[in-house]
Simulated scan of single mutants.
Amino acid sequence: MRLLDVRIVRWYSKLAYVLGALAAGWVLRSSLNALGTPPVATVAIGQLFDLVAILYGARVFRGRREPVGPARPWWRMTAWAPAGWVIGLLAVFYVAVGVIAVFLPVEAVGAEASSGAASVASSVLSTVWFAVVAMLYLNSARRSTTAPSAEPTPNVKPTVR
């Protein structure tokens, strides 16, 4: 059985996948920190892992009335456009926060300055990561609203009495 032949349909299985991916990402980042990996490398490797987990989840998750057998189109991240809009706009919010974090001096918000260049590089990586996630989900939502539905609508006229 190939990894992309797996299908996750039930909500509790999807929740278990997401929680498992979060836990695995936390273990990966903690291990890298314990090994003395530079913070920027830890952020980059952790975000690459997260992106792979998101993309794999998008390939194997299936929504209600979505065909289980065939592979999803490459651009589809969610079963329904509203979910793509919500996740994409949430990622856009985090992009905005990241841009503010990169360009606003840390002292201006009353926080202590951290390690300077490494902190800025980590913020830039996070902002780019959220921009990629936003692009994936917003593109999926936009195309889902214009793509033909999987189930054709029957052309039945109501009977008038």
Results as ranks from 00 to 15, higher is better:
Trp129Glu: 04
Val124Lys: 02
Leu4Arg: 07
Ile8Trp: 05
Val18Leu: 07
Ala24Gly: 02
Ile8Gln: 03
Ala101Ile: 08
Arg7Gly: 04
Gly20His: 05
Pro73Thr: 10
Arg65Asn: 14
Val52Phe: 10
Thr145Trp: 15
Asp5Asn: 09
Val40Cys: 01
Ala150Cys: 08
Val132Leu: 01
Pro39Tyr: 01
Ala16Ile: 02
Ile87Phe: 15
Ser119Met: 11
Pro148Thr: 15
Tyr17Met: 03
Ala118Leu: 11
Ser149Asn: 11
Ala141Gln: 02
Val27Arg: 01
Ser140Tyr: 09
Gly63Pro: 05
Thr127Phe: 01
Val86Lys: 09
Ser31Asp: 06
Gly57Val: 03
Gly110Asp: 06
Met1Thr: 15
Val124Phe: 01
Arg65Cys: 11
Ala21Asp: 07
Val102Arg: 08
Val133Ile: 10
Thr146Ile: 13
Ile8Asp: 03
Leu136Gln: 05
Val6Tyr: 02
Ala24Leu: 00
Gly46Asn: 04
Ser114Ala: 15
Leu15Ser: 01
Leu15Thr: 02
Asp5Thr: 12
Val6Pro: 04
Val40Thr: 04
Leu138Glu: 03
Lys14Ile: 00
Val120Trp: 05
Arg62Asn: 00
Leu35Met: 00
Leu32Thr: 01
Ser119Tyr: 13
Ser114Cys: 15
Ala113Phe: 11
Arg59Gly: 02
Arg65Glu: 13
Asp50Glu: 15
Leu4Thr: 09
Val124Ser: 05
Val97Gln: 10
Ala34His: 03
Ser13Leu: 12
Ile54Asp: 10
Ala44Lys: 02
Ala71His: 12
Val86Asn: 08
Ala23Leu: 09
Leu51Val: 07
Val68Asp: 08
Leu51Pro: 09
Ser30Ala: 11
Ala111Tyr: 12
Ser122Ile: 06
Gly63Thr: 09
Phe103Asn: 07
Trp85Arg: 10
Glu112Gly: 15
Val120Pro: 13
Ile87Tyr: 10
Ala134Cys: 03
Gly84Asn: 07
Ala23Asn: 05
Pro82Gly: 13
Ile100Leu: 15
Trp129Leu: 06
Ala121Arg: 08
Ala44Gln: 06
Arg142Val: 10
Val52Asn: 08
Pro70Ser: 02
Val92Met: 13
Ala121Gly: 10
Leu90Tyr: 12
Trp75Gly: 12
Val124Glu: 04
Pro158Gln: 01
Val160Tyr: 11
Ser126Asp: 08
Met1His: 13
Thr146Asp: 10
Val18Arg: 07
Gly20Tyr: 03
Trp80Pro: 11
Phe130Met: 07
Trp129Gly: 06
Arg2Asp: 14
Glu66Pro: 01
Ile100Lys: 14
Pro152Cys: 04
Lys14Gln: 04
Pro70Cys: 02
Ser126Tyr: 06
Arg29Asp: 12
Thr145Asn: 15
Trp11Ile: 11
Ala21Phe: 03
Ser31His: 05
Arg29Met: 13
Pro105Asp: 05
Glu66Trp: 00
Ala41Thr: 12
Ala131His: 00
Gly98Gln: 03
Ala131Ile: 00
Val40Ser: 07
Pro38Thr: 04
Ile87His: 10
Trp75Asp: 11
Phe49Cys: 03
Ala147Val: 07
Leu3Tyr: 00
Ala118Asn: 13
Ala41Lys: 08
